[in-house]
């Protein structure tokens, strides 16, 4: 690591200590291409190693929040810090390096269906130019961790829903991100698989990764008793440690 890279890393660590691993400071954002407000003066702080649920009805601003955290869109007002990066000052060239610090899991899995489980997970490593010998070591390790040790040769399209989501989680984790962002990760799963996936996410969190789960599923939120941030019409209506899913009118 060069001295410059070392300084940048130290600066990011300093930001994480001061502001948390995710920080929104009076953020106002609009729906892309419109002037309708999606998030209005939202402030929140998530510390390193936390497990947080973000809940809310449709149109409450959950998707906008995810887009902001991934720097897909920029806020109209306010500052955002994610993983020590100050997103408002991040150049287009550096966005790709910033995104390597976040693992993303989607509701619809978004696997490369024609490729094997191994290729799907290795794909994430190749993007960050990991040497092949490391990929060969890391991929089986992470597949074992998500409970798919013998499935690396299987085609992604042949897997069951729960297994596909495990592959997606393995892909999100293989690059060792500091944050795992899961957008409705159980939306397409049955109750049994839902519980298993949430248990896996909890285990990942216990290993030190900050986990942010955006969900509609009140049952898992109520069962797991983690921190719950509830959004309502673009504002935070409640933020409670060990909270429940509260239905808003």
């Amino acid at each position: 690591m060069t001295k410059r890279e070392q300084r940048r890393l130290e600066k990011r660590q300093q930001i994480i200590e001061e502001k948390g691993i995710i920080c929104l400071d009076n953020v106002t954002a609009q729906y892309p291409g419109t002037d309708t407000t999606a998030l209005d003066q939202v402030s929140l702080r998530i510390n390193k190693g936390e497990f947080v649920f973000i809940v809310g009805n449709s149109g409450s601003g959950k998707s906008t929040l995810i887009k902001l955290l991934l720097k897909e869109i920029t806020p109209v007002e306010g500052d955002i810090y994610v993983g020590g990066y100050e997103l408002n000052r991040l150049s287009h060239r550096k966005i790709s390096f910033f995104r390597r610090t976040i693992g993303v899991v989607f509701q619809e899995f978004r696997l490369l269906k024609e490729r094997t489980v191994y290729d799907n997970v290795a794909f994430a490593q190749r993007i960050i130019e990991t040497p092949v010998y490391e990929i060969k070591r890391n991929v089986p390790e992470i597949l074992a961790m998500v409970g798919l040790p013998g499935k690396y040769k299987a085609s992604a399209k042949d897997l069951a829903g729960g297994e596909q989501q495990r592959v997606a989680i393995a892909r999100a984790l293989v690059n060792k991100p500091s944050i795992l962002l899961a957008d409705e990760p159980t939306g397409n799963l049955d109750p049994q698989n839902t519980r298993e996936i949430m248990k896996l996410l909890e285990e990942i969190n216990e290993l030190g990764t900050t986990v942010v789960v955006v969900t509609h599923n009140n049952q898992i939120v109520d069962e797991m008793r983690k921190r719950v941030i509830q959004l309502n019409f673009g504002s935070i209506s409640s933020d409670e440690e060990g909270g429940y899913y509260t239905y808003e009118d």
């Binding site: 910033f98 995104r99 390597r100 978004r110 794909f123 994430a124 993007i127 960050i128």
Partner: peptide
């Protein structure tokens, strides 16, 4: 488009 989008979410540079 899914593959391209995935690459971007996983931190691929534009060139990659």
């Amino acid at each position: 488009s899914v593959e391209i989008m995935l690459m971007k979410y996983l931190g691929a540079t534009d060139f990659f």
